[in-house]
Write a protein that binds this DNA or RNA. Structure first.
Lengths: 331, 331
DNA sequence: CAAACATGAGATAACGTTTACAGACTCAAT
DNA sequence: ATTGAGTCTGTAAACGTTATCTCATGTTTG
């Protein structure tokens, strides 16, 4: 829209556009008198510099993009908030995109951001657009992967020891409920690296006891509430339902409880250990434990890697691995 | 960074930049032969048009900004996701900012967006920057207020009948627990319009029975978990604790339960009715009911108003009011 | 058959900034 | 007096696009 330009300000203040620009950027020489006068005029006119023109000219946007699979998920948003905060403090800003766990939308989002000339991309990916992402990383825009790896992409990344935490949690359940094997695994989609790793860790715990996972107690969910519900119905209506469940994320866990509720089974009838942000839920039941992924910590790491990469593009690739805390809250 | 320009493409394809621009925008005349050739070249070079330059030239960004008080709150994000979706479908995109419920950060966010030349602003405000917001609305950038009114600002808006819903809920509690008055009100900050309205509605229900709210059973929270916890400690440690609580938002409700937990009081010892997204929580307790604000519905309305306003700036101001559903889930 | 028109493609002037570059002035040191 | 450095300000050329204006061609039309 026809908003004010530096020209209007210059005219109103009786100086050249160059001078206005200089006071705007506090660069070059400008007398204190004119300086304050120009600033006065800018305030009066309510002038707001055009970031588009500025970025175009400077060939810098000081902008970072982040694309997340689900912006309604507090885990991701808590992480992202820290990133935004740290970037802001360093003069960058963050632009959010939601891929909805959908590779095509992810592609669209990334291309939109590229068009905006982001200087760095933070991605919790669907795992599918490896070729493009690699290409981006090799052509000037820094890429930091978070939470999830992407096949064939080697860049800075901050991930979690999903396998290790899953193994620990399942080992705990096995220890408690014996080797009878009545422990169910509620897995996420194979396309997502975290889901694969969690599933693998869980299985490893079982194998270490010289057993194999009972495939009728393994459910291939897709990180949605609905799939947790489905798993519940599948398992809990049989003659010998499992005694415990390991769930790969929070949404599926909620779905599982919803299923119990619908089946009329008391929520405390079965012990659950779940990955993900379930703080609020643990208030309400005595038999749910979580594998807590500290999103603040992860956000801090992401911000740090982004900023480091931005100031030195030639750095070696860095990989941060955090260990989620298996927090036994069963009372 | 030195990304490719239309010039590079033109050179590689052996045509002028004007021609490349024409195929890019499918405007003007260009032979099918050259057309496909240029597109081929663009694919090969992985060319991504510079949105900054494009917007600058066209004096249109097709961008809408949204500033929310808390992007980790699924209520807001569920609403925003719909807005984004609808805007995308109409060729706009949405840029998110988080004000953290802080007027100064809100101001900063708005100014940033203005600098980016957003064409419309969606705002769930802190209630504090009325002057600026009014000014924006009167100078070409459409403004749509959502969830919360802002003093002195008259623009398109979509809000809820907070007072009505609060009144209904508290009337229910009064009916159930008699007029003994042992119903506690957990209010939000007075600066936020929704909080004021919810508090007022609750008080109205009490007055209708010819009584006044007992001020020792009214707690002035601030929409944070911590304040819910504080309220709990304040009320539940006295000789005659309240029999029921009306809470103005979800976060405070979680805090209240956390307080109960810490005090060792069974969560079902007290009935709660709360505003906000508490879907998951109602799975776990039998004595929590929610006043459900349908975020999808609100998102749809916001998107519709934004799009209408964008295509006809002269429209009359429109105000959509939704009635939250008081959903009695107590079993 | 000239005149009108549709088609195709290149030059070029913006859009709102920043940033050389170049003048002009002041002031101290030679 | 002359130089030179330091301070202040303006002119104008970019940044990567799009859109207007040309100028060529055909291709209809009256």
């Amino acid at each position: 829209m026809p908003s004010l330009t530096i020209k209007d300000v210059a005219q109103a203040a009786g100086v050249s556009t160059a001078t206005v620009s200089r006071v705007l950027n506090a660069s070059g020489y400008v007398s204190e008198q004119i300086r304050s006068h120009v600033q006065q005029v800018m305030k009066e006119l309510n002038y707001q510099p055009n970031a588009l023109a500025r970025s175009l000219k400077q060939e810098r946007t000081r902008t970072v993009g982040i694309v997340l699979p689900d912006m309604t998920n507090p885990y991701f948003m808590t992480m992202a908030r820290i990133v935004q905060q740290r970037l802001m403090e360093n003069g960058y800003h963050l632009i959010y995109m939601d891929s909805g766990e959908n590779p095509a939308k992810e592609l669209e989002a990334i291309e939109l951001l590229l068009g905006m000339r982001i200087e760095a991309l933070v991605l919790a990916g669907t795992g599918e657009n490896g070729e493009l992402i690699s290409h981006i990383a090799h052509s000037g825009t820094s890429v930091v992967l978070v939470d999830r790896a992407v096949d064939g992409v080697l860049t800075d990344s901050v991930v979690e020891d999903n396998a290790g935490a899953a193994e620990e949690a399942v080992a705990y359940l096995l220890g408690k409920y014996g080797t009878s094997g009545a422990i169910a695994l509620l897995n996420g989609p194979e396309s997502i690296s975290t889901a694969r790793e969690r599933s693998e860790g869980a299985r490893k715990a079982i194998r270490r006891l010289g057993m194999e996972a009972r495939e009728d107690l393994v459910f291939a969910g897709d990180y949605t509430r609905q799939s947790g519900r489905d798993a519940c119905k599948y398992w809990m209506t049989r003659d010998e339902p499992p005694q415990a469940v390991f769930s790969a994320n929070n949404e599926m866990t909620y779905g599982f409880y919803q299923g119990l509720r619908e089946l009329g089974i008391p929520l405390d009838a079965i012990e659950v250990v779940s990955f993900g942000e379930l703080d609020a839920a643990t208030l309400f039941t005595n038999r749910l434990s979580v594998i807590y992924q500290n999103p603040q910590q992860i956000g801090e790491a992401v911000a740090e890697l982004v900023l480091k990469r931005l100031e030195d593009d030639a750095r070696d690739r860095e990989r941060r691995i955090f260990s989620p805390r298996f927090e036994l809250t069963v009372r």
